[in-house]
């Protein structure tokens, strides 16, 4: 009770104070971002439990709420599901740098598939252009824009989340809003994330993206088949990243970036299945991982082979 009184007292004080400085527009302007950031957080979302603590009934309510939110915000009937990992499955990805031409189709297909905000720099997949003859990330360029690709003296390396076995991003998260699922995918609970961006700084592969702005999504391009842990429309101010399209891959399908690749550079599959395509690559090609020395143990492999 006394707490409440103090609160009210503080609030009315603030009111008076703000009246006092009403003329100082600069102060008001400096407060307006607060409105932008916390403006339309609704109370239910605010009080929602962590993903792991939601009972099935609560989850049903949450999904219904998210669907209603999406309808209100974008006017589209989005289906949000909670798709669980499959048993005996661990996903891995391989990318053939010998055939990748750097056309960026994967990045755009991903953006569309995952309802990624169209604001600049948000794409989960970043394609690095490098000089042939080495892997020099220092001089890599991801803003290349020639008439046609590939350029003869360059090669191209798409980088997205590596779904590490020893993920530094997960360790960096102070609130446990990001974790590794049994099928190897590192996921984010967008409703639990506080947007501190520690994980972004911890990731050695620049794979995480922060939603600075309210997501810009053209209504007619929204993918309505979504999952809680992957491509559902996200709020502003949270971290997001590639989830190997878990809403597709957990249902047995290929990720969107793989299907759109015009060169067939991408190979995806279940590591535990000895007959899978990914196992064929790991057993027959000389694969390497990016920044092996940092000890993150990625599940994303590269190889050079025409």
């Amino acid at each position: 009770m006394s707490n409440d009184l103090v609160q009210i007292g503080r609030r009315s004080f603030l009111k008076r104070a703000s009246v006092a400085v009403a003329g100082v527009t600069g102060v008001m302007a400096s407060l307006s971002p607060l409105k932008e950031v916390v403006g339309d957080i609704d109370i239910e979302a605010w009080l929602q439990q962590h993903y792991h603590e939601l009972s099935p009934e609560q989850m049903k309510d949450v999904l219904a709420r998210l669907e209603a939110d999406a309808k209100r915000t974008y006017g589209v009937d989005v289906k949000v599901q909670d798709i669980k990992p499959r048993p005996d499955t661990k996903f891995a990805y391989a990318l053939n740098l010998g055939v990748c031409v750097g056309c960026r189709k994967c990045a755009y297909a991903c953006e569309k598939e995952n309802n990624v905000s169209r604001s600049p720099g948000m794409q989960y997949i970043r394609v690095l252009e490098m000089d042939k003859g080495g892997v020099n990330l220092e001089t890599a360029n991801h803003q290349y824009d020639p008439e046609t690709v590939p350029k003869p003296d360059k090669y191209y390396m798409p980088v997205q989340c590596h779904q590490c076995d020893n993920p530094s991003c997960v360790k960096a998260c102070p609130v446990n809003a990001t974790w590794k699922e049994p099928d190897g995918i590192v996921v984010v609970d967008y409703n639990w994330c506080i947007g501190c961006r520690y994980c972004e700084a911890a990731c050695p592969y620049w794979a995480r993206r922060f939603n600075f702005e309210k997501p810009i999504l053209p209504k007619e391009e929204i993918n309505t088949n979504t999952a809680y842990l992957s491509n559902r429309p996200r709020p502003q101010g949270v971290m997001e990243k590639c989830t190997f399209c878990l809403h597709r891959t957990r249902e047995g399908r290929y990720p969107a970036c793989l299907e759109v690749c015009p060169t067939g550079a991408r190979v995806f599959g279940n590591l535990y299945d000895p007959k899978s395509e990914i196992r064929y690559v790991l057993e027959n090609k000389r694969v390497f991982v990016l920044k092996e020395e940092v000890g993150t143990v990625p599940n994303f492999f590269y190889f050079f082979e025409a």
Partner: peptide, 23 residues
């Protein structure tokens, strides 16, 4: 394999991971 036109670069965003985060 014929060369093809690339899609536009992603643009520069605040929080671009190549620059050390200064926020």
């Amino acid at each position: 394999f014929k060369p093809i036109a690339p899609l536009p670069p992603p643009g520069v965003a605040r929080g671009e991971a190549f620059a050390p985060p200064e926020e």
